[in-house]
Design a binder for these strands. Structure first.
Lengths: 255, 255
DNA sequence: CTTTGTGAACTTGTTCACAGCT
DNA sequence: AGCTGTGAACAAGTTCACAAAG
């Protein structure tokens, strides 16, 4: 169904690369820390170290924003904080709703980094009537029935989904229908959304699996089944006394 | 201390591309769902749709694992589940410790995706003596003093940090000193680790800021108002694409 | 026929290294 | 002198398009 080509809504305007956009918040955090210590200027080398990237990359990233540094000196901290904030759209207020107030939803509601960066928790929503009215992080939980009204009344355009996987798509559909155009999804599901709606996902189990992959590799170099010959030696190791989730072993491979 | 820089794990053993590794868990999830429905085979087109990627990319990804498909037919679901699991190292048991049992830590402890994929929560650790002994997700919280002993007794190599930002580096140092070599960091801090230790971070506020950036841009570009009919084109799209070598992904933080 | 597997073209991202400003 | 800003070289990732296999 990939009828449409890479119809990236993208950025043809000033075209800041996606990889750069993803690092701006990192720089912003480092700069904010410097700002709080009243450091007036910082060099690309110092700031890069604080943000955990290399200085050439940082300078290249900043070059997409404009020439905000001073040669021989460095960058003005306050000025750069402002420029990056503006670029990220953090100088305006973003009302956000969190749907699904379990442990994770509660953790998100309590997250301090929210308010401090232009994001405001406009409402907490959960399908459990038992939760309705109970305050979490000082905000009373509202019932899912109110979802559409809440979105519209507050002009919410960003929604956070922290529901179980089974409810995620349905919640997503309702959020989108009500006007939400950016979604942060914590449920382990691939969401389908209409064109124009942005979805980012945060998936704990995927992160762990990636770590496991690298961890496995640390314990010994292995030649991954070469090509050509059929790796009859699939050698299923049964060290795992643990029974897998779906626990099943391999079906034999085809021809 | 004197920890070296945090440069790339650099274990680029000329193997599977990092971008591919990051997608394997996604394929695995889709395949598991098919497996539960007893679907015997699947084409790259179908599986790609379920995983939210395009089929050429999926085939290329699988080609790094070997030739596990059958032309004209597709892939054997069970066989592929096994191969990917093995590649990711999920056929073995990974004991994990979670440090910092606030709302987020509790959410992680309760998260089903952990246990269901070869990951076993070996211990919950928190610095608050008031929490010690209290069960969370059926597991009694242990005090930070026991950290080193817990790591060693359980042979833990993966640690999850869900503490406040201020405590993260210290906890990280202790985990590493005790033998942990992979860390999933939820605290909004850049961690310094010695060479050979892998860190992935999940940062909620960074994800929100990236969404805000794109959201801000949407006001400018106007979608050519549909003609009459509602755009039924519910195209699944994927965008989150930021897999840095050091793992720069998203982000979340506790209270 | 159908669908995989893959070289080759293309796009995006990173690093180098140095010209040019202060 | 010191440090930014950036073209050019390099590397990684994605998509195309088609030959080969069943």
């Amino acid at each position: 169904m990939a009828t449409g080509r890479t119809h990236r809504p993208a950025t043809r305007s000033r075209g800041i690369p996606e990889a750069t956009v993803a690092r701006l918040p990192l720089y912003l955090r480092a700069l904010t820390a410097l700002s709080e210590r009243s450091v007036p200027t910082v060099s690309s080398e110092e700031l890069a170290a604080a943000a955990g990237v290399n200085s050439a990359k940082l300078r290249k990233d900043f070059s997409y924003l404009g020439s905000y540094g001073t040669r021989g000196v460095g960058y003005d901290v306050e000025y750069l904080v402002y420029q990056i904030s503006r670029e990220l759209g953090l100088t305006q207020d973003w009302p956000v709703v969190i749907v699904g107030i379990g442990n994770l939803g509660a953790a998100l509601a309590n997250y301090g980094g929210f308010a401090s960066r232009g994001f405001r928790v406009a409402a907490l929503i959960d399908a459990d009537p038992g939760l309705t009215g109970k305050p979490v992080a000082g905000i009373p939980v509202q019932h899912t029935d109110e979802l559409e009204k809440i979105i519209k009344d507050n002009g919410v355009s960003i929604g956070v989904i922290a529901t179980p996987a089974g409810a995620a798509q349905q919640v997503c559909d309702r959020l989108v229908a009500a006007g939400v155009t950016s979604i942060l999804n914590f449920a382990p599901t691939v969401l389908s959304v209409p064109e124009g709606v942005d979805v980012r996902k945060v998936d704990l189990s995927i992160e762990l699996q990636i770590l496991a992959f690298h961890e496995q590799r640390k314990s010994g170099e292995e030649t991954p089944a070469g090509d050509g010959a059929v790796p009859a030696a699939v050698t299923p190791r049964d060290d795992s006394a643990d029974q897998g989730p779906d626990g099943d072993v391999p079906a034999v491979m085809p021809a």
